[in-house]
């Protein structure tokens, strides 16, 4: 199996997170900012069991997956759902922000085709590309900050957070943190530096989310409440030069991150499908088509996937690792006891 560096894992996860932040519509006040901080702290605790699980170098998720094939199927379904969410985000953004395509569905199909190709290049290409895309994210954020600085008014930020609002925002943020499930699968590919990568990821996730929220709130003021996608609106308002509009540049960032996020889902699904059905052909294509179908269904029915995704994240990223960790410890203790008995009998 391909081996990945810790820094590449960080790059991939932060890129996926930034895509989620760009698509967020409710990072609009002190409650949401505080909620993100609380949610990040909870997530750090939540991923501790999976890190403990991987601490043992003999652990192999491929061999020890809970419920065997059924467990893998659950993860496949989650990644298909998360990929569908990426396509849905594209759908929604193209309705509010000008994209030069006749219909959102066509845009999603073209993006899906690109993702099928990029997924076929392998997981190493994915990780290397994420390393370069992090550079693009950095440049875009710098441009945004430079443009936002003269326009930001600190008085737009009103520290009126309340407990229930913070909790709601924290729960919402947790339900959007699908990268925790991806982390559980991807950790297997990272032989060294997992803990450092995860620590840096959560730190960067908190800092960048709060930074983007702060820019949006201080630049947009009350307009944030009527804006469909505050990130794009803040980008439009944060023009570095008054005579020049540069908001279309954020379209480039959005598109590349959307490709990366969808490609990750297709790659991970394909990886797991390969273990279940190795003889199945065109796995990437089938996965992409399923994602598009689910995405279309979500858009047509306007189904809010937040609760469902939250439950799945709780199960797949928290409950499953905990159960596997306990089971592993139990078996280890059993082995130790039986070997002790054998020694004492001898």
């Amino acid at each position: 199996m391909s081996k990945i560096k810790g820094s590449q894992l960080f790059a991939l996860l932060i890129s996926i997170r930034i895509f989620s932040v760009i698509c967020m519509t409710d990072l609009t006040n002190a409650n949401s900012m505080a909620g993100v901080a609380v949610s990040t702290a909870v997530q750090i605790l939540a991923v501790t069991p999976m890190l403990l699980l991987y601490k043992d170098s003999s652990f192999s998720l491929k061999k020890e997956m809970l419920f065997g094939k059924f467990g893998k199927l659950l993860y496949i379904l989650f990644f298909i759902l998360w990929g569908a969410v990426s396509f849905s985000n594209l759908w929604e953004v193209t309705k509010s922000v000008y994209f030069p395509i006749e219909s959102s569905f066509t845009g999603a199909v073209i993006l899906g085709a690109v993702c099928v190709y990029t997924a076929s290049l392998g997981i190493k290409a994915l990780f290397r590309a994420s390393g370069l895309i992090v550079g693009l994210i950095g440049i875009s954020l710098i441009i945004m900050l430079v443009g936002a600085y003269p326009k930001a008014e600190l008085t737009h930020f009103i520290p009126d957070a309340d407990f229930s609002g913070i909790i709601k925002a924290a729960v919402r943020d947790f339900c959007r943190s699908g990268e925790l499930v991806m982390l559980f699968i991807l950790c297997e590919l990272v032989p060294k530096g997992k803990r450092k990568a995860v620590t840096v990821f959560f730190t960067a996730k908190l800092i960048l989310t709060e930074l983007i929220a702060a820019v949006e709130i201080t630049v947009l003021g009350k307009i944030i409440n009527i804006s469909d996608f505050p990130f794009f609106t803040a980008g439009a308002f944060s023009q570095p030069m008054s005579i020049q509009r540069a908001d279309s540049v954020y379209m480039i960032l959005f598109t590349i991150l959307c490709v990366l996020t969808a490609t990750v889902q297709i790659t991970l699904s394909t990886m797991l499908i390969n273990e279940l059905l190795p003889d199945l052909k065109y796995k990437s294509l089938i996965t992409a088509v399923l994602m598009l179908a689910v995405s279309s269904a979500l858009n047509i029915t306007q189904f809010d996937i937040t609760v469902l995704s939250g439950i799945l994240i709780l199960i797949l990223a928290v409950a499953v690792p905990i159960i596997m960790y306990i089971r592993r410890k139990f078996h280890e203790n059993k082995k130790d006891n039986s070997s002790l008995t054998a020694v004492s009998n001898a």
Partner: peptide, 23 residues
Amino acid sequence: MKTKKIIAVLLLSVTLSGCSGSS
């Protein structure tokens, strides 16, 4: 074969995208 299918989808999308209408 896979590549051809992807290209076919892309080309179909070009015709469906109505891009010819842009000014």
